[in-house]
Design a binder for these strands. Structure first.
Length: 286
DNA sequence: AAACACGTCAACCGCACTCCA
DNA sequence: CTGGAGTGCGGTTGACGTGTT
């Protein structure tokens, strides 16, 4: 006897979601909040399995996600984190709050992998290995003086620019469409409101909290199943209050951590991600 | 204009993990 | 301690769009 299916497959609809289904899902989540996905198709009448509902919400309908047009800066972050973390897309996505793990994974497989492969084909193998192998606390290409302009450019941009070419608060186009269809939806959330910290796990509900002893505006992850906070949360909680609200909000905050305090945090990354130093120093796989 | 090749990405699949009774 | 339920995550698929011949 094999593993039971995640849901009753009989009558389950598959394939692309329709706007009507999106509206139903968004309406339901607006009222009940994300989570308890098992009950979503039951309560909404959607002929979708719970996993499909969760995926649709997580990757396309939830507010705060940006789609397409990865900036060079984002590319640099992805390249760097992929070299550090490997194909841990959810972990990588936690540093790019507006991007989903699926989006990053697709972008990596369709764009960055080829881009880097092409770039690497022009550079010496030993140099490439050196670029990604030995120092996981610094950017690979720039810090090693790579002669490869493509890699150097991506990494340097990532290092330099705090999302200068990336508007920090925007909603997904899909959300725009849905919110237009859904009169009143998002009425409690202004587009000018800074999005919450990175989250990819929509079983979490976010609420602003003021922390005792560290009065920064934060967002507490209230897990419906008591899951632990992400690494980002742990780091974010240690940042001073001012940096969150200044310079465009939390993005500068965690970027400054990511790039300026990477060395200090590296051991925490390794611990929390269960990565050994050796694992992080494995050259990229192409 | 049609056929084919290729690229992109939304969505699915199935294993892993956590929680809880 | 154990097993079931619920959910997270990464790999993969396949439909669709675009480019090329």
């Amino acid at each position: 006897m094999g593993r039971p299916p995640c849901c009753d497959k009989v009558g389950i609809k598959k394939g692309p979601w329709t706007p009507e289904e999106d509206i139903i899902l968004v309406s339901y989540i607006q009222e009940n909040g994300p989570g308890n996905w098992r009950s979503v198709p039951i309560n909404t009448g959607l002929m979708r399995c719970s996993k499909s509902c969760r995926l649709r919400w997580t990757n396309y309908l939830r507010p705060g996600i940006k789609r397409g047009n990865f900036t060079a800066h984002e590319e640099g972050i992805i390249v760097h984190l992929q070299s550090l973390l490997g194909n841990r897309w959810a972990a990588i996505a936690s540093y790019l709050p507006q991007r989903t793990d699926n989006d990053i994974k697709n972008y990596w497989n369709t764009h960055l992998k080829k881009k880097l492969a092409a770039a690497n084909s022009n550079s010496d193998i030993s140099e490439r290995n050196a670029m990604f192998a030995d120092d996981s606390t610094s950017f690979p290409a720039g810090s090693h003086g790579s002669s490869n302009p493509e890699i150097t450019q991506m990494v340097d941009i990532a290092r330099r620019s705090p999302f200068a070419d990336c508007p920090s608060s925007s909603y997904a186009s899909s959300m725009d469409n849905i919110s237009k269809l859904l009169d009143g939806f998002m009425k409690t959330t202004s587009p000018s409101t800074p999005p919450p910290p990175p989250y990819n796990d929509t079983t979490y509900d976010f609420k602003p909290v003021v922390e005792v002893g560290n009065p920064m505006l934060s967002f507490d992850r209230m897990s419906s199943n008591g899951a632990e906070l992400s690494f980002y949360d742990e780091v974010h909680r240690q940042q001073p209050a001012s940096s969150f609200m200044e310079h465009g909000g939390y993005i500068d905050d965690y970027e400054s951590w990511l790039f300026d305090e990477a060395a200090a945090a590296e051991h925490d990354v390794a611990d929390l991600m269960d990565l050994s130093h050796g694992c992080c120093s494995v050259p990229m796989m192409f």
